[in-house]
């Protein structure tokens, strides 16, 4: 129970280091992998974990450990790539709506409301199902849903911050809109947004892996964890390691990033215990 008694700063540093380890593993994945993730070996199909293949092999004799290590880069890379894109876009749109108000605000918020009427996964299914499965459509679908979350939060924060003394001081000092946003507004609204961002990493990973599992996202033979699981499903009875390890890897990474999210929330927003 020691972890719970650490102070916020230490918790944050520990969580950040854990996340950094995960990212490093993902970046170095292809170097650490003992085999080629796409190389098939028909002599050794569905072999249980053994010294040569630490986590066993799949239905065409590919090394699962190597596939997991290389897949990490795809799963994490997609998650981070998408989130950073959506984060910037959401803040931009949200700030525009909050600062300008009036018709811009109404139109943007109505669009966001409509998109939010779709449950996340259902919207992704609508886009991917109707436009065709594949990684591009999946990314578009998730981007279209996710920006609304950041845009709405930003808008609320901007609305509150715009009346704060700091921003009024900036206005009185004669700052233009761009300068006002960059130097006076952003620093005040960034902490809650970063908290939301860190809490969303895990959710985004689960959404991407879930869509790949359904066969809508990353397509085989690319070693993405969700699609590995989906391919391994048929062998659940005879070769459960095909399913156990990719899922466990996803679980572990999501746990680490959720810990980071919680730690970030406590660290950046001290008023919430």
């Amino acid at each position: 129970m020691n972890l719970f008694q650490l102070n916020k700063q230490h918790q944050f540093i520990i969580a950040l280091s854990l996340a950094a380890i995960m990212v490093t593993l993902a970046l170095l994945g292809p170097l650490l992998a003992p085999h080629d993730p796409l190389e098939t070996d028909f002599v050794q199909i569905l072999t249980p974990p053994n010294p040569e293949y630490l986590l066993g092999t799949d239905q065409v004799g590919r090394c699962i450990l190597s596939r997991l290590l290389c897949g990490a880069r795809i799963s994490l890379g997609m998650t981070f790539g998408m989130l950073s894109m959506i984060f910037v876009l959401g803040i931009f749109i949200g700030t525009a709506a909050g600062m300008r108000g009036g018709i811009t605000d109404t139109v943007i918020m109505r669009i966001a409301d409509t998109i939010l009427a779709f449950p996340d996964l259902i919207f992704a299914i609508a886009v991917v199902g109707l436009l065709g499965p594949g990684i591009t459509n999946t990314i578009c679908a998730l981007a279209i849903i996710w920006w609304t979350k950041f845009a709405r939060l930003t808008r609320v924060l901007v609305r509150t911050a715009i009346h704060s003394e700091a921003v009024i001081a900036g206005q009185m000092a004669g700052a233009g809109t761009v300068k006002l946003v960059r130097h006076y507004l952003l620093p005040t609204i960034l902490p809650p947004l970063l908290t939301q961002l860190s809490l969303d990493i895990g959710n985004m990973m689960l959404a991407l892996a879930g869509l790949s599992f359904l066969g809508l996202g990353v397509q085989p033979p690319t070693p993405e964890w969700g699609s590995m699981l989906s391919e391994g499903r048929e062998y659940l009875q005879s070769a459960p390691w095909l399913v156990i390890y990719p899922g466990l890897a996803t679980f572990m990474v999501v746990v680490v990033f959720n810990i980071l999210g919680d730690a970030t929330r406590k660290y950046l927003n001290p008023e919430i215990s």
Partner: peptide
Amino acid sequence: SFAAISVPDFWLGLMLIL
């Protein structure tokens, strides 16, 4: 509850089947 939030539901289902 932390573990339950982080677990991929598709994997959870397969583990329950297993």
